[in-house]
């Protein structure tokens, strides 16, 4: 089991690194737009699309590893008072049997959307730049797949009773 969990972690970490790079792209694009518009009176056609796409991509790609770091905020003052096994049991059941199928189905739809956008050559609806949409859809799909896997891994860890240390990273 452990090698599989480690593989999932590694995938999440790689996407998280990618999200860090996307953050830099976002900043650079916005600065470029301000300078282009204000100094050169020649705003770009793409800065607006890039801003929302980068934001969407960076959070979706970062979500899985954020779960690995247990950075998704929870209110645990009641949970902390529960017996350890009960708490892990709830965590395992909810992650394995509720959240994993939910996010897997979201990932499934996301992959379908990316494929459809690729095949139909879908472009942005209102942007004067009108970029192709499939790369953006693909990143969302990628992030959701990783998140679904990480949710599964998190549930398995809870079921195996290994999650305790992570819970305490952030109290």
């Amino acid at each position: 089991m452990t090698p599989i969990l480690k593989l999932v972690d590694a995938v999440s970490r790689a996407l998280f690194r990618l999200a860090e790079a996307v953050t830099l792209i976002l900043v650079a694009a916005m600065i470029y737009e301000v300078v282009a518009r204000y100094v050169f009176a020649a705003p770009t056609l793409w800065a607006f699309d890039i801003s929302y796409m980068c934001t969407g991509v960076l959070f979706v790609l970062g979500a899985a590893y954020a779960l690995r770091e247990d950075a998704h905020v929870r209110i645990d003052f009641l949970a902390e008072r529960m017996p350890r096994r009960l708490r892990l049991g709830i965590e395992a059941v909810i992650f394995l049997f509720c959240l994993a199928p939910i996010f897997a189905s979201l990932a499934y739809v996301a992959i379908g959307r990316a494929l459809r956008a690729y095949q139909s050559g879908e472009v942005e609806m209102v942007s004067p730049w009108a970029p192709l949409m499939w790369p953006f859809y693909s990143f969302i799909a990628l992030g959701l797949v990783a998140l679904a896997l990480q949710i599964l891994a998190h549930g398995l860890r809870a079921a195996l009773g290994r999650t305790e240390a992570e819970f305490e990273i952030e109290a």
Binding site: R37, A41, A42, P43, L45, A47, F48, V126, S127, P128
Partner: peptide
Amino acid sequence: KGLKYRTSGPWAEVMKDYFGAVPTVVP
């Protein structure tokens, strides 16, 4: 000429290509 004009779609292209205005995307 040179005016920053919040608009979108066909008008943005017309303003830019025919009148030298600067179409600007503002959410």
